[in-house]
Design a protein around this nucleic acid. Structure first.
Length: 268
DNA sequence: AAGACCTACAACCGCACAATA
DNA sequence: CTATTGTGCGGTTGTAGGTCT
């Protein structure tokens, strides 16, 4: 039996099991979050299928794992993706491609899902706007040699008046005080547990997203030697000056493609 | 005011691979 | 060695809320 066939039979068995067990799908409720967090707090994570059963959750192990890793896990960082994070994502993606989990490892507290979503909503939108394939050389070059340098300029320009951005590091999204059975709103900008924490909803609204391009942190200094992130991977040399110089002959055409309006669009 | 459209993001799915029986 | 199970990853979808007309 080949692998695909094995997977098919496995999926089929899994489906039967789901039908029998009446597995829940869709948005998680506060109760479910409570069950999952409480169980993991006591027993630790892993063995997700049995964990789901033992915790009394009518969810698949996969679903539990995803909910934990992307939302309930301590130190999951939520809120707007900072300019530095954007820059890092662009650079790492140009280097590694769609290796979201690998990229996420370099952005503490960010999940692969969040980075993937960022890429799809912002970067692919930009490619579409420019009428080129996101994986095309043209778009990649534009990204590396026009978008990213300009992003860095904005970071540097904003460093003098930087204010803390509204990103939050949440110990856990789980709030035991919430015991209603309301479904956790998947699009609520206030993560569960912060809804009553005093953080106003506007802290997470689009009003703050990119509204202040100076909303960041430490001056990065020289981009090429930048190591602003503690976990910045070794040998990630960001842009390669030699490659850059070798490419510049085509710069003007890209500049014309990636004009200020487009850049504005990209960051708004 | 209301319906259409858009955006962002949580969650699901299929596949691949490693570990284990 | 083979079959099964568990886990992780990347792609995709569904939908609530926001914006536009």
């Amino acid at each position: 039996m080949d692998l695909h066939a094995r997977n098919l039979s496995s999926s089929s068995d899994h489906r039967n099991e789901e039908e029998i067990m009446d597995v829940r799908k869709g948005p998680w409720t506060v109760e479910e979050d409570n069950l999952l967090v409480n169980y993991i707090t006591v027993h630790g994570e892993g063995r997700w299928n049995s964990l789901a059963q033992c915790a009394g959750l009518k969810r698949t192990g996969k679903s539990c794992r995803l909910r934990w890793l992307n939302y309930l896990r301590p130190n999951v960082r939520r809120g707007d993706i900072s300019l530095q994070e954007q820059l890092l994502i662009l650079e790492l993606h140009s280097r590694w491609g769609n290796r979201w989990s690998k990229i996420a490892q370099c952005l503490p507290g960010r999940t692969d899902n969040e980075i993937k979503n960022y890429w799809r909503t912002r970067v692919q939108k930009q490619a579409k706007q420019l009428k080129c394939e996101v994986n095309s050389k043209e778009f990649r070059d534009a990204m590396r040699f026009v978008w990213m340098p300009r992003l860095m300029e904005r970071i540097q320009a904003g460093s003098g008046t930087s204010t803390p951005q509204p990103d939050i590091v949440v110990g856990s999204k789980y709030d035991p005080s919430q015991s209603s059975s309301t479904v956790v709103n998947p699009t609520n900008r206030n993560p569960p547990g912060l809804e009553n924490s005093g953080a106003s909803s506007s802290d997470y609204s689009l009003d703050t997203q990119f509204s202040d391009m100076t909303d960041c942190y430490n001056p990065p200094g020289n981009y090429y030697g930048y190591n602003g992130f503690g976990s910045y991977p070794e040998n990630v040399g960001l842009m390669d000056r030699q490659e850059n110089e070798g490419w510049l002959g085509g710069g003007e055409s890209l500049e014309s493609i990636w004009n200020d309006d487009n850049i504005f669009f990209a960051f708004n």
